[in-house]
Nucleic acid binder design. Structure first.
Lengths: 139, 139
DNA sequence: ACTTGACTTAGACATTGTCTATCGTAGGAT
DNA sequence: ATCCTACGATAGACAATGTCTAAGTCAAGT
């Protein structure tokens, strides 16, 4: 696990118990926790960690580009540690389950200049929505 | 304007002053208001309309498929009256401006079966992110 | 015009996120 | 090893967005 921690240290981050715990909780594939879920898990390892610290730490990781923010439903933002590996998301509309997926093709190329309104486009997010197998059976 | 109103009436909706005002406020292209923005504009036409009614009405329009919910930033959801005309969104990361865009190609076709994890996929949302011309000049 | 069930209202409450003032501590300096 | 100090952590107030409830109101069919 966490070369995430190594990358952060390499950028001159002061290493604290709180930051270590947040990075550890976020580790893994298909991990898309909300800030409060991260907090809950962090508390079980470091009971006195505060909500503000978790929010701050997640925000800094996002700023550094080490963690991606994912807004799949207009509710709480989710945090995805796979920022270094480009991917998109597949979301179950019933239970909210999220999987990382890797579509073929480049959606960026699909947007003609006439449809760019002079914007400088930096990235594209694709969200596939549907029903997951386990929700499909329990109609 | 609103065949939206006609469509809603055709579905057995009871027509009230509040619902009419909400539908009118939402009319137009490149309209992506938050619920509270809709409420503010509705109040100027019908001062006693309540926040709860606006939230309820928007929610019902979404359920009926007449209005699309757009979550571009993990903050307030925005409401897009162009549900009947498929399109994607282009968002300015600085000022939050949103434009409707129509990419070529079909992102649905870009997701191989092996990447679908058994999901039944019903739709795809594509969000292009960048900087709009007016934000680009005011560095 | 009446009646009724659907709609609206005000405001409490819930969830998610931000800010501030104060305290603590990581890590370099000595 | 100890000390300093700037940066990080903390509690809790506050803000923004969304949901719920109990009671009043009204659209539309009869």
């Amino acid at each position: 696990m966490s070369d995430l921690l190594e990358r952060l240290r390499g950028r001159g981050w002061r290493m604290t118990a709180q930051r270590r715990v947040v990075a550890e909780v976020l580790d893994g594939d298909h991990v898309h926790l909300t800030a409060d879920e991260v907090h809950a898990r962090a508390v079980s390892r470091l009971p006195e960690i505060s909500r503000a610290t978790v929010y701050n730490t997640l925000g800094e990781m996002v700023t550094l580009g080490e963690v991606m923010e994912v807004a799949t439903d207009g509710r709480a933002k989710r945090y995805d540690p796979n920022a270094h590996r480009p991917h998109q998301h597949l979301v179950c509309g019933r239970c909210g389950a999220i999987r990382d997926v890797h579509p073929a093709g480049d959606p960026m190329a699909d947007l003609p200049d006439t449809e760019r309104f002079g914007f400088t486009i930096s990235n594209v997010e694709v969200t596939y929505r549907g029903i997951c197998p386990s929700c499909a059976t329990t109609a």
